[in-house]
C-alpha cells in the first residue's frame, strides 16, 4: 500500500511533516471547573476537570500532595461502526493511566495537599491520534480550571510508513500496522514526559520519527498558548478590564 505518493503527498493531501488542522475551544462544559474541546483533524475530544476539591474517599487522601484521577472513555458514536464500548475495558484503563501519569507529571500536586483533581476525557470522534488529543484537551481543561502546572504538556504522534517518517497519523495510516510513536513533552522545560511505541522500529529510524513527533508537540504547544492567550483576553474584556 502506498501511503506517501512519489509526489510526496499522503492519502489526505498532507505532506509527511504536516499536522492535521487543529481546533480548540475552552469552556465547553459549564458545570466543570475547567473544560475544553480539542480537535486534530477529524479526531475530536472533550475534557472536563473538577477540582481541586475535597477527596471523596478519605482513605485515598494524601497529606503532602493532591490526588489526580482520570477517566477516559469513548463515545459510542465516536467510530463509524457505532458499537457499544464497554466501560473499563483494558484499552480504556491503559489510556486512563497514561493520561493520569502524564498530567500528574506537570501538575504541581504538592501545592494542593489533601485535595483531589478529576479529569474526564471523552472521545467524541476517533480518527487516529486519540491519545495525543486527550492529553492536549486535558492540558487546556486544567489550565482553564486554574490548576497550577509546571508547564503545559502537549502530545503528538508520528509513525513511519513507506520508509518515510509521518507526523500525526490519521486512522487509515494508524491502521497500516507500521510503527506508531506517541510523545508528550513539557515544551518550555524541553522535557519528554511520555513516550509510547507500537511495533518495531530500527534505532536510527526511531530517532527521526521521535524528533518529528517532538516538533509536532512544539507546534501544538504554540497553538495551545495562542488559544489560552486569546481566552484570557476575552475574559479580561468580559470583566471590563
Amino acid at each position: 500500500m502506498e501511503y506517501v505518493s512519489p509526489e510526496g503527498l499522503r492519502l489526505d493531501g498532507r505532506r509527511p511533516t504536516e499536522m492535521r488542522q487543529l481546533r480548540a475551544e475552552i469552556g465547553a462544559v459549564a458545570k466543570a471547573d475547567g473544560s475544553a474541546v480539542f480537535e486534530m483533524g477529524n479526531t475530536k475530544v472533550i475534557a472536563a476537570v473538577y477540582g481541586p476539591r475535597e477527596v471523596q474517599n478519605w482513605s485515598q487522601q494524601m497529606s503532602d500532595q493532591a490526588l489526580v484521577r482520570c477517566e477516559y472513555s469513548m463515545a459510542n458514536f465516536s467510530t463509524g461502526d457505532r458499537m457499544r464500548k464497554p466501560k473499563g475495558d483494558r484499552r480504556s484503563t491503559e489510556i486512563s493511566l497514561v493520561i493520569r501519569q502524564t498530567m500528574e507529571a506537570c501538575i504541581l500536586t504538592h501545592l494542593l495537599p489533601r485535595s483531589q483533581i478529576d479529569i474526564f476525557v471523552q472521545v467524541l470522534q476517533a480518527d487516529g491520534g486519540t491519545r495525543s488529543a486527550c492529553i492536549n484537551a486535558a492540558t487546556l481543561a486544567l489550565a482553564d480550571a486554574g490548576i497550577p502546572m509546571r508547564d503545559l504538556v502537549t502530545s503528538c504522534s508520528s509513525g513511519c510508513l513507506n520508509r518515510t517518517p509521518l507526523l500525526d497519523l490519521n486512522y487509515v495510516e494508524d491502521s497500516a500496522g507500521g510503527p506508531d510513536v506517541t510523545v508528550g513533552i513539557l515544551p518550555t522545560l524541553d522535557k519528554v514526559t511520555l513516550l509510547q511505541m507500537d511495533a518495531k522500529l530500527p534505532t536510527d529510524a526511531f530517532e527521526d520519527v521521535m524528533q518529528l513527533a517532538i516538533e509536532g508537540c512544539k507546534a501544538i504547544a504554540n497553538y495551545i498558548k495562542e488559544v489560552l492567550q486569546e481566552n484570557t483576553k476575552q475574559l479580561e474584556c468580559r470583566r471590563g478590564l
Binding site: 492519502l11 489526505d12 493531501g13 498532507r14 511533516t17 504536516e18 499536522m19 492535521r20 488542522q21 483533524g41 477529524n42 463509524g80 461502526d81 480518527d127 490519521n170 487509515v172 507546534a219
Partner: peptide, 27 residues
Amino acid sequence: MLKSNVFNKKTRNNRIKKEVREVYLRD
C-alpha cells in the same frame, strides 16, 4: 508549519458505512 497552505475540509461518503475522510486542499 501549515500556514502556507489553504485548507478546505471536505468529507467523502463511502459505501454503506459512513466514512469521513479529510482532504487537505493545497496551493
